[in-house]
Nucleic acid binder design. Structure first.
Length: 619
RNA sequence: GCGGUGGUAGUUAAGUUGGUUAUAACGCCGGCCUGUCACGCCGGAGGCCGCGGGUUCGAGUCCCGUCCACCGCGCCA
């Protein structure tokens, strides 16, 4: 019978003890955070997931215990029995438990530890590669443990909220049929069916729609999803969605339900009351086209303005305004090669106010951002007191009329600098959107990372249902089962690019934290959508037959959304990396440095699943 | 697939025009110390300069290749 664990049970967590506990005998378990050996007495900061308590070992209390305490080193795991004592004049106001200490009477060393490769401290001075190799140590950092507690609180608030609103949590398969389109799937070979494959679910999308047909009415699930795509700072190959679907609702009903969820999540995660900022808990809605025009992004950060100005129309009007390259573009619009309503190329501007106080060199540096986003360069013009342009490649070209028109359109004042981008629409938008955020950070309008205490939520609504493919055909901008706006139905055949749909994204401080749609349950409209996509009935049947069949058997009107739990935890946790809120994350090349994965498997294992590998040779 | 940044003691970094034995701080080890809490003081150990080629009398430094990590573009309905 071991003395500690079997007889002496943990009485408190480290971080819990206060002046109220003075005089009590306590038993604490934890890791040695630091030790300070003063010769006569030994101080230990003992750490568990709830905090740190100072334990002092003195020879006059127990000479044997003191002798053992003398050998303790960082990250050893110990148990301590002792008495809580008021520190009196020696209190430490920097510690939550700084008013008290525990005098160690009895001590047990459960396990020693080698010197850790980096120190367990909040400020991670060590590079991430090493921290991921020792993720079990990295996770001991108090700040990281707080993030996981936050994530837990968000998840629990979600479950409570949906339960209270009559939702059922239903699990759906992860090993699923491969369906084309969208993200690349991880594939899973079948042992029982030679040469055939499952896919790992990229989302429960199709299943949750079938659950609506089944009559479950309100469904949610906190569920892992898998996508075999390249990673970013806010993307992991496996990630967690709060997946939701509802029947007999419209877009407003769905928004109301999710707004309520977000209010609960913020309350549980941060203690923040969103209804103070958004009376009635309603988030503003931003039209997709307006978002693209003003911010070049379908997930704009609305904590600051710095809006873009589209100069395409006035440039065409001024036939390029005397600027050679603009003239070429304007000509293509004139002769009908480009269309203003579906532009191949656009010209956009962004005004940096004089008050930003940027030097010429500062503005030069913005060109790096442009190039990083695939742009060629960054033309600019500083507005002189008389309205003319200086520091500009356009200085000698631009006609007075064009210059004045641009100044007026952008609202640029003397001292301001106008930045220009011209090129394919999507490229210009990416460049200008990233430039806008970059400049806002440099101007101090938003912090480099984190919210700055500013939680700006909005819905981005009414995007087009179709987007043009390179071959001139049409593809589903999101998925083929999104309900178009009734008033746009006539355009499905005539002008597909203009058909808006009930698709929506929830955006928080420039991050898409969720997206969904009202589903198309009318078979007649569905057929027309397929037709525009170039899918005949047979082809559609082959690809989505199981869903189409289900929808024929009495599908209720329904719609839903999926929220990114990782991203929500990341943002509420004021960290800029999704890896900080994933317990065992993958690197940017999708490897796990801790377990060294992926890994080759044996020929026997491959034979079991009827697979032969072909490794590409490098030349 | 493409572009950018980085890789030097356990860790974080410095390292000049290519030139003697590659520095510092923290950590680690040993000693002293009964009120520390970034404890202090004294002493010590610790290096395949990511890896492989090349140039050179001589390479951490220059050139070529390669690997790893990070950031972005493409991609992610």
């Amino acid at each position: 019978m071991a003395r500690f664990i079997d007889e002496l049970k943990r009485s408190h967590r480290c971080g819990e003890l206060r002046l109220d506990h003075v005089g009590q005998e306590v038993v604490l378990f934890g890791w040695v955070h630091t030790y300070r050996d003063l010769g006569g007495c030994v101080f230990i900061d003992l750490r568990d997931r709830e905090g740190i308590t100072q334990v002092v070992f003195e020879p006059q209390v127990n000479a044997d215990t003191h002798k053992v305490a003398d050998t303790l080193r960082k990250e050893w795991v110990i148990g301590v029995r002792g008495k809580v004592r008021d520190r009196g004049t020696m209190r430490n106001p920097k510690m939550d438990t700084g008013d008290i200490e525990v005098t160690g009477v009895e001590l047990m060393i459960f396990n020693q530890s080698p010197t850790p490769p980096f120190e367990i401290e909040d400020d991670p001075r060590t590079n991430e590669e090493l921290r991921l190799q020792y993720r079990f140590l990295d996770l001991r950092r108090p700040r990281v443990q707080k993030l996981f507690k936050l994530r837990h609180n968000v998840a629990q608030a979600t479950r409570r909220y949906f339960d209270e609103h009559g939702f059922l949590e239903i699990e759906t398969p992860m090993i699923v049929k491969y369906t084309p389109g969208g993200a690349r799937n991880f594939i899973v070979p079948s042992r029982l069916h030679a040469g055939q494959f499952y896919a790992l679910a990229e989302s429960p999308q199709l299943y949750k729609q079938m659950l609506m047909v089944s009559g479950f009415d309100r469904y949610f699930q906190i569920v892992k999803c898998f996508r075999d795509e390249d990673l970013r700072i806010d993307r992991q190959p496996e990630f967690t969605q709060i997946d939701v679907e509802m029947s007999f609702i419209n877009q407003d009903d769905l928004f109301g339900m999710i707004e309520g969820l977000m209010v609960n999540i913020f309350k549980a995660g941060l203690g923040v009351d969103l209804t103070e900022r958004y009376p009635g808990g309603k988030f503003p809605r931003l039209d997709f086209y307006e978002a693209m025009e003003k911010y070049g992004s379908d997930k704009p950060d609305l904590r600051f303005a710095l809006e873009h100005t589209d100069l395409t129309a006035i440039t065409v009007e001024h036939e390029g305004g005397g600027i050679p390259f603009f003239g070429d573009v304007a000509q293509k619009f004139k002769n009908g090669e480009y269309r203003l309503d579906l532009p191949e190329a656009i010209i956009k501007a962004l005004v940096i106010p004089a008050s930003a106080g940027f030097s010429r060199a500062d503005v030069d540096a913005f060109e790096t951002v442009v190039k990083q986003n695939g742009g060629k360069g960054l033309a600019r013009a500083k507005v002189a007191p008389d309205g003319t342009w200086t520091q500009s490649p356009f200085k000698k070209w631009a006609t007075d009329a064009y210059r004045e028109a641009v100044n007026a359109q952008t609202g640029a004042q003397p001292g301001d600098t106008i930045l220009f981008q011209v090129g394919p629409e999507a490229r210009v938008h990416v460049i200008m959107a990233n430039l806008r955020v970059h400049i806002a950070k440099k101007m101090g309008l938003i912090p480099e990372t984190g919210s700055g205490g500013d939680w700006n939520l909005s819905w981005v609504v009414a995007p087009p249902i179709f987007e043009r493919e390179e071959d001139g055909g049409w593809a589903a901008a999101h998925h083929a089962f999104t309900r178009p706006y009734d008033e746009d139905l006539d355009l499905i055949e005539n002008d597909p690019g203009k058909v808006r749909c009930y698709r929506y994204d929830l955006v928080l401080n420039g991050f898409e934290i969720g997206g969904g749609s009202i589903r198309l349950h009318d078979p007649e409209v569905q057929a027309r959508v397929f037709n525009t996509l170039g899918l005949d009935g047979e082809e559609a049947e082959r690809l989505f037959g199981f869903l189409l069949k289900a929808l024929r058997y009495g599908a209720p009107p329904h719609g839903g959304i999926a929220l990114g739990l990782d991203r929500i935890a990341m943002l509420l946790g004021e960290t800029n990396s999704i890896r900080d809120v994933v317990s065992f994350p993958k690197t940017q090349k999708a490897t796990d440095l801790l377990t060294d994965c992926p890994d080759p498997v044996s020929d026997d294992q491959l034979a079991d699943v009827h697979i032969r590998t072909v490794i590409p040779k490098k030349d």
